[in-house]
Design a protein around this nucleic acid. Structure first.
Lengths: 234, 234
DNA sequence: CCCGCCCTGTCAGCCGGCTGTCAGGAAAGC
DNA sequence: GCTTTCCTGACAGCCGGCTGACAGGGCGGG
């Protein structure tokens, strides 16, 4: 999960970054409205945390521009306590949730996770796809109910697949959501993680669609009769 | 265990602080309603002791606001003797227990401990996880029934792990619950305590999940015979 | 008031797991 | 059968976590 934090107060930004990283997010920062606008408009984030008080370009304007440009990332805005108008305006401008300052970090993490899950179409914290179970809160994975130890990066990959279960995810997209704007990684890095995951999870969990990308196997092959290609479409 | 005392009478506050510290809590103080609200809304406490008579913002309002904001810490309210209505209102507002003034410190400690344990999902004063036993009242620890001498800080750490047995606890979270808002400590301090604890408790008690955090080992390896099968976690 | 012990945080160095890269091999599509 | 795409085992660098050593501070005893 790739997140963008838009916050000019360095101290708060650092706290947010630490908390989100601990929650398994890949975190990027923007300190003012203009860079925020640029980043959010250019890159694809699974979550944006947006403070409204910003230098150079205020948060509401940034949000409106994003939405006008077709950016659909879930946005969680941080408002000053009691600033009613800000909240209303924020929701109007396309925010998905708001959190009044000051707040506790757990609260933010909980809402952040809820937003990400909701964006995936399902509200539940434990995602079940075929034989695989992914617990987004506890950051654990299991196959057929048997827990499997996964590393942080492996978990990020598999949870991204779980949240995008009903489509094929391109390797380049995975690259982007695993490493953000760090361009130095090669595509093969994703393949390596996939291999390691498959070794841990066993066969029949992560599927490949040659030329398109990866996806989680929807259902266990119903009969022992192995018809190699159950999927009709291509 | 991190506790917040909300009490404007300095004398009582000092008594409470002393007693809770002696009981192994990490104690922070708030002298009026507004700071109490701020602290409780921002930080994560394992217990809050709340006097209802407060300057600037009365206790019930503080409690209601906390609950409205999603604060779930157990709250023990102190009421004046015979103030029936206060108790009822307190429970309605989301208090977990109340104690009429004046009270004996032992009574408060007992209830405080009960609340903390209940928040951990188990009511028992002696927590058992795998080979480890932690007695929250006597502040003692034992492995395989053999008592182990632990220092106050070590005990706070291990009891926190015991009360959060069914999840991985991040080092930063331990830092927060061991030292509160004292930011001066480094992460390495936690690692040092872990090392000392492991030396005392022996292997197979405190486990590490690289990249995630620490947890108490759930079950002793059943037989000396290593079951070579792919263990889900280690 | 001084002394000494215990507790505890910091530092530095070591170790091992995580992870990216490479190169060769297998499989799918034509 | 050839090409393209993907898989995978091996290897190396890096970073996170572990640990022994040291120092400062608090507390109790003398």
């Amino acid at each position: 999960m790739r997140a963008l934090i838009v916050e000019d107060e360095p101290r708060i930004a650092a706290d947010l970054e630490r908390a989100l990283k601990a929650a398994g997010f890949l975190v990027e920062l923007a300190g003012d409205g203009e860079t925020a606008w640029f980043r959010g408009g250019t890159e694809d984030y699974d979550l944006i945390v947006l403070d409204l008080n910003l230098p150079r370009l205020d948060g509401l304007s940034v949000l409106k521009r994003w939405r006008a440009e077709g950016c659909e990332s879930p946005v969680l805005i941080l408002t000053a306590r009691g600033a009613w108008t800000e909240r209303v305006e924020g929701i109007d401008a396309g925010a998905d949730d708001y959190l009044p300052k000051p707040f506790r970090m757990e609260e933010l993490i909980a809402r952040a996770r809820a937003l990400v899950r909701r964006a995936g179409g399902r509200g539940n914290a434990t995602q079940q796809v075929g034989r695989l179970t992914v617990d987004l809160n506890r950051m654990t994975a299991a196959v057929d109910g048997i827990p499997v130890a996964v590393t942080p990066l492996e978990f990020r990959l598999i949870s991204y697949l779980a949240l995008n279960r009903d489509r094929i995810v391109a390797p380049t997209e995975l690259l982007e959501h695993l490493y953000g704007d760090d361009e130095s990684r090669e595509l093969n890095a994703v393949e390596a993680i996939i291999t390691r995951l498959r070794r841990k999870l066993g066969p029949g969990v992560i599927g490949t669609r040659r030329g398109f990308g990866y996806h989680l196997e929807d259902e266990p092959p119903p009969g022992a009769a192995g018809d190699g290609r159950a999927q009709g479409r291509t």
